[in-house]
Simulated scan of single mutants.
Amino acid sequence: MRLLGPAEIRILANKLDLRPTKKLGQNFVIDAGTVRRIVRVAGVTSDDVVIEVGPGLGSLTLALLPETRHVVAVEIDPVLAAQLPKTVAERGLADKLTVIQADAMKVTPDDLSGHTPTALVANLPYNVAVPVVLHLLEVLPSLQRGLVMVQAEVADRLAAAPGSKVYGIPSVKAAWYADVRRAGPVGRTVFWPVPNVDSGLVSLVRRDPPPTTATREEVFAVIDAAFAQRRKTLRAALAGWAGSPAGAEQALRAAGVDPSVRGEQLDIHAFARIAEHKP
């Protein structure tokens, strides 16, 4: 399969009069070895329907198509969305691709032309990586796993464990849906334009949420409150959520959580227990 290299990327960009924008977080992969590595680490098979967000000029798309049953590419840029099917058709794989011109933050199953994605594989725009991942895990329960390339700092946050300095809202909310792990670094020079940050791969494997009588929204409300004031103890940080510091302490003790600890010390199961005991 002929993939896109630096020369092909420049030719396409010139043809489209493309100027990558920071607003859309556009950094295109120009290294064939990197996209092959992503597909390999993602572990996709001929049974998988992959959803790819921000396919851009198609570097990763072209590597995914031969290895999967179908790729649904969600692209917000109308120029790129119009070009991608042409690039793929030149390689004889048009029947395996569906392009949706849409904002991935607003995509629902009804937008995917009848396809049911089983895996998310994407070089995500850095400025929306976390909300896109959380949104797709929520609205597409068919997603069983994912491999996303994000800013290294975001990769660290998503995969952080309780007690880590970078453990926070993205870490806990992602853990509601999936087992999340770092899956390797990615250097800056594989992109055009070259970003001023390093990147990293993050693996997600779907798992059941914690057994709880609280809803996801109720649990996420506790998480948001706990990390809104990171330096405060949970007794203080959850005072607004519970109605008072005393109410927060009551909920925390009922959940088996020490009121003097901070949010970064708790896992998703503890937050679920707290949500069950809101006064």
Rank of each mutant, 00 (worst) to 15 (best):
T212C: 04
A178D: 06
V39L: 08
V197H: 01
K86I: 15
L65K: 08
I223R: 03
A248W: 06
P78W: 08
R91W: 06
A129R: 01
A7V: 14
M149C: 03
F271K: 05
G92I: 11
P109A: 03
L234W: 04
L65D: 07
P170S: 11
A102G: 13
F191K: 01
V50Q: 09
K86Y: 09
V49K: 02
V41A: 08
Q151E: 14
L18C: 09
R216F: 05
V29H: 00
Q229L: 10
P6I: 06
V139I: 00
L57K: 07
P85Y: 02
T108R: 12
I51N: 12
V49S: 05
V172Y: 00
W176Q: 06
T215A: 11
F227I: 06
K278H: 07
R145V: 15
L4M: 06
Y126L: 00
E8H: 09
G187V: 12
L124N: 02
L64Q: 07
A161D: 13
R157M: 11
L147M: 12
V49Q: 05
H115Y: 11
T34C: 05
L137I: 08
W176C: 05
E52F: 10
T233W: 06
K96F: 04
G114C: 03
A255Q: 10
T21M: 02
T61F: 12
A89S: 14
A160I: 09
H135S: 15
L234T: 00
V130Y: 09
T21P: 00
R69T: 07
D208F: 04
L65Y: 05
P210T: 02
A214G: 01
L24W: 01
T87P: 03
N127S: 14
V186K: 05
L204S: 10
L112D: 12
P6G: 06
R40W: 01
P279I: 06
A228E: 12
G58A: 11
V39N: 02
L112H: 08
R188P: 01
A239K: 12
G184T: 08
Q151S: 09
A152K: 14
I9Q: 07
N127A: 13
A122D: 02
A159M: 13
A104E: 05
R157A: 13
L124K: 02
A81I: 09
P85D: 03
R145P: 15
L147R: 06
A161M: 15
L93M: 14
R182M: 09
I11M: 14
G56R: 04
T98L: 01
R19V: 14
L112M: 11
G58F: 01
D208P: 12
V44C: 04
K22Q: 00
S113C: 09
T45E: 14
D208C: 03
V130T: 13
A246M: 05
A104R: 07
L158G: 11
L234G: 04
P245K: 14
L65T: 07
V29W: 00
P209S: 13
A155E: 04
S199A: 01
L238K: 08
M105H: 08
A225Y: 00
H277Q: 10
I11L: 15
A237I: 05
I268Y: 07
G92W: 11
A178S: 13
P117A: 10
